[in-house]
Design a protein around this nucleic acid. Structure first.
Lengths: 205, 205
DNA sequence: ATATGTGAATTAATTCACAGCA
DNA sequence: TGCTGTGAATTAATTCACATAT
């Protein structure tokens, strides 16, 4: 089953709302309520949830608990929960410190850095490992996703290591659009670029 | 002139390539060459550059220097270059430390934090200011864009301050999808969400 | 030859409109 | 009545095909 990327990027938003409201004791949530919190349309929420296989019931909406579970499993939080973090600088520290990753059911299980002089140092409770250990650990631990949070020198090396690590997916926060083999799914996030896009949108109202 | 969002998000990529190649001494760049580095199609690059008003010449491609200037002006790096940063924690520090912002012609000119006990402290060479000064400084300095990099408590307060600051655009890195008034253009970036989306895409090949 | 530029066709994504159910 | 679910229509974005310029 193929899923459109825009849908894949909205589902996590619904999941967050469902978790929040579940925590708050709500049993049911209408597509309208979810849409309202996110500034989307109710139809879109229903269509998207439909893609994930969730179904609601008329007059009540979607069952919070069940829908949450469906989304979690659909989004792979079950068996893809363990991720690597490559980098140990400011950005990587921010990722480690932020609860955004944990809140979505993921766990950073190892930290790698191209700067070998950092080897052994601890960042956020995890020891910094050399890139050379990446392929081996990927296989041994069965980890499939890494977050790339390296900038400046070492980036090239880190990218190369990732490219033949055996990983399936990379979340690239480096802002440098490095090429990766087609066998690896890459999602790029780059606030410099988005800042630029925002400025562009403002100049042209 | 209205510009599609996908285009607005690709133009900064072209700009980066143009800068790199300009630095490297290149005079001309074909749409094909640009596309190749970014994994896009040449037609798309031409169409996008066309939207910005750039034009190339057959057999040679696009004039690097001139096209760069056109993009810079089109993307508003001229008169929207000064931005505020709200937050002074790990994420905000990472934004300050990263050269991604500067490399795109933007400059962070002031730092605000909801935690008033931090007032006066210096982060990355800038003094931390209280949120209460935001509206005033926005008007006085003519700044139109802020980066929101606050998490945890204080986020609500920061969002509220931004909402009636008079700013025109917000790059929201908080990962919390707070509502802002419709008069403010908001672009959200949330690696937790994208991590989730990536995992989803991998589970469903 | 080699690359741009663009109308036309295609594909993707969103929204509309309404049927159906509790 | 208040909500879901979905085929149909609409709008947006991308790709194709080819005319054009050097």
């Amino acid at each position: 089953m193929k899923m459109p990327l825009p849908v894949a990027r909205r589902l996590p938003l619904y999941l967050r709302i469902l978790r929040e409201q579940g925590q708050a004791g709500e049993q049911w949530l209408s597509s309208d309520a979810i849409a309202g919190r996110l500034g989307l349309s109710a139809v879109q929420v229903r269509k998207d949830l439909g893609v994930a296989g969730a179904q609601g019931s008329p007059k009540r909406g979607f069952p919070v608990d069940e829908t949450r579970k469906i989304l979690e499993s659909f989004l792979g939080a079950d068996d893809l929960a363990e991720v690597f973090l490559v980098g140990s600088g400011e950005l990587a520290s921010a990722v480690l410190a932020d609860d955004g990753v944990a809140r979505r059911g993921f766990r950073i299980v190892a930290l790698f850095d191209p700067d070998s002089t950092l080897e052994g140092r601890e960042v956020g409770g995890l020891p910094v490992l050399p890139l050379s250990k990446l392929p081996n650990l990927t296989r041994r631990m069965g980890v499939r996703i890494a977050i790339l949070a390296v900038s400046g020198p070492g980036l090239r090396e880190a990218a190369a290591a990732l490219a033949d690590s055996g990983l399936s997916g990379i979340l690239d926060l480096s802002g440098a659009s490095i090429g990766f083999p087609g066998s690896i799914e890459v999602l790029r996030e780059d606030y410099g670029r988005d800042l630029s896009a925002l400025a562009g949108a403002l100049v042209r109202p």
